[in-house]
Design a protein around this nucleic acid. Structure first.
Lengths: 353, 353
DNA sequence: ACCTAGGATTGGAACGATCCACAACATGGG
DNA sequence: CCCATGTTGTGGATCGTTCCAATCCTAGGT
């Protein structure tokens, strides 16, 4: 139990935890000296530091966060409003992202505070935490057009970083990180063209989705760069397996269509369903590529090629920028775009290997 | 922006947030009276309460959490160590669970604090938060045999609730909630027997996993209740699609085997892969049931029947028990077992509908 | 009119850390 | 020997809230 060098505290059961004063008394120094030992050790004479350190370790002292927070006005907490994943879609991005974020935050001594909010009101929850000075900053994740969190927080001078660019808000001047969805769709499409496909269809979302438009633009640019026409090949759907399945059946009535790139794994899985129903082999006969590299894409048969967002990098970049924002440093760049990669699996490869 | 009744705070930019004293001055009462207005409104005369309330609303006052936490020694934070989902497995339980937990916690005025820990050391992280009194309590999720968190926290008198029963620790007397895995496997197996299958195989985990043993026991009990022999039908694997795929090929060399129940969706998806490779139709020819009702199970073709854990109920039960623990109320029951349900999809139905 | 009981309200102290101004101490130059 | 200089360490005040004990007020009983 104590192999990790944890202090013995068995006897301290039911005792109040040690405070600065306790440690100071035990070490024969003043409170301030102990505080310095923790916050600016270089102010102490080496031998004093050593002595104080030992007492700290022996008593298992850790500064009380509430007191520290009250004095320094910094909680070392980062707020994140946690929205539920929709059932029936394969979107398990959040899990990977969240873990990376927790990890990245912990490296700078921060913890993540999750809060819920009324789904009807995208601002619910932020306000309370802000007014009660419960968090140092926020990470905002849903920045699709029309969500007011960013401008709300900006108006309040609340420190925050967005995962997602400010799509069409010219007033926005907050820090952000985003993944280049157009580039993702482009490399997906190029990969299908490399496999010899000429008529590559696109399954995307409704017109209103900016993220969807961005990805679709990547498909279009790859097609036109190859001198190919996209007329009649782009389909707009809701993000739903069954909608994609039916749309695929319609698309495949045109026998020249031999590949489908999708705006999400959910849609791509719908395509695979349609292929199964028609007895067509994914990869060998019809090329399919999804988006997000969800767990479903990883385990689905025969393996779904997908565009993978560098969520680990996103998380670290978010935290790094947040540090600058909190330190009131001017930002080198207001936003930063990261590039996704393509994970190739069987659904897009013509060769059986 | 103000449709939700939020106070106007545009002018308060860059101003320090209002404090109790600010409000008290503005309302012409003492600090304590404002505090009472918030914490024990029944102590105030209705008209005083009304007046104070109005000032609070007008100034947009919210008590400073750090100060409150320092005084009351309660942070209203619940700690959860957040482990990464393994890539390549379909385990997206965490997402659903986490959201329910955030939701349940918020109803009692709590927030969730996520922290990371060294994967090598299951205790890492708990200690710091405890000593710095950063959280009121913990929710512990990995209680498979041999993990020391529970006894560690119990030794420290740290309030916590476990998701998972204390498998074989007779010393354990902490509160817990768990899902009856044996029952889940039993209803899964019974369902397959209902479909007319007689030789139902089991794909499970290695012997060391208590959860795995529990689920396997459910399969065995359903089989023996139906007077069926299980000899040679139980397989032990690591939780991995490919291992399950290969094991299935071996199992199906015995043509009498017509159904497979699995300890996880990951394994079940491996079974589906094997069926696809053999050209067998899931459901119509070979019945398959998974466990956990992951997103992958929901979207996979042709629909994977799976045992669904009532994670929403688990989350709410955890929070309710946590409240009792924090109030030092004696627990009515030390542990509570919730029953999973079976979500039937095509992979287990003989009729094509 | 006086006293008391009880509710409503108040000021001071405390939670445990950090900031601040100052005192104690050693060092070195005149 | 004394004072300037710089390093260490000290006690008091402070952050914003809640706890505590005491005070004010009003109404009711004698």
């Amino acid at each position: 139990m104590n192999q990790q060098g944890r202090p013995e505290v068995g006897r301290s059961r039911h005792l109040p935890p040690p405070t600065l004063a306790t440690v100071a008394d035990a070490a024969g120094v003043s409170r301030q000296t102990v505080s310095n030992a923790l916050n600016s050790p270089d102010l102490l004479r080496p031998e004093t530091l050593e002595r104080v350190q030992q007492v700290i370790d022996k008593l298992g002292y850790s500064p009380n966060r509430a007191a520290r927070q009250l004095r320094t006005k910094s909680s070392h907490l980062i707020g994140l409003r946690f929205e539920p994943a929709q059932e029936g879609t394969s979107n398990a991005l959040m899990d990977r992202f969240l873990h990376s974020l927790v990890d990245a935050a912990s490296r700078t001594g921060h913890h993540l505070l999750l809060f819920a909010g009324d789904p009807e009101d995208p601002l619910d929850g932020y306000d309370d935490l802000l007014r009660s000075t419960a968090v140092d900053a926020f990470v905002v994740t849903d920045t699709y057009a029309g969500t007011p969190q960013s401008s709300f927080l900006q108006d309040r001078d609340a420190p925050f970083v967005a995962f997602g660019r400010p799509w069409d808000d010219p007033e926005a001047d907050h820090a952000w990180i985003d993944v280049d969805g157009a580039h993702g769709a482009r490399i997906a499409t190029e990969h299908l063209l490399d496999q010899g496909h000429r008529r590559v269809a696109w399954l995307g979302w409704e017109r209103a989705s900016r993220i969807g438009q961005d990805r679709r633009a990547g498909w279009e640019s790859a097609m036109s760069a190859a001198g190919l026409d996209t007329a009649g090949l782009g389909v707009r759907l809701t993000d739903n397996v069954d909608a994609a399945r039916m749309a695929t059946h319609r698309l495949l009535e045109d026998p020249s269509v031999t590949a489908v790139a999708c705006a999400s794994d959910t849609l791509a899985i719908g395509v695979l369903h349609a292929l199964a129903e028609r007895g067509l082999r994914p990869g060998a006969e019809i090329g399919v590529v999804g988006f997000d590299d969800s767990l479903a894409a990883q385990v689905t048969w025969p393996g779904l090629t997908s565009v993978r967002q560098p969520l680990e990098d996103v998380a670290f970049a978010l935290i790094r920028i947040l540090q600058s924002v909190l330190a009131h440093k001017p930002l080198a760049t207001q936003g930063r775009m990261l590039q996704p990669t393509l994970v190739v699996r069987r659904s897009s490869r013509r060769d059986p290997l």
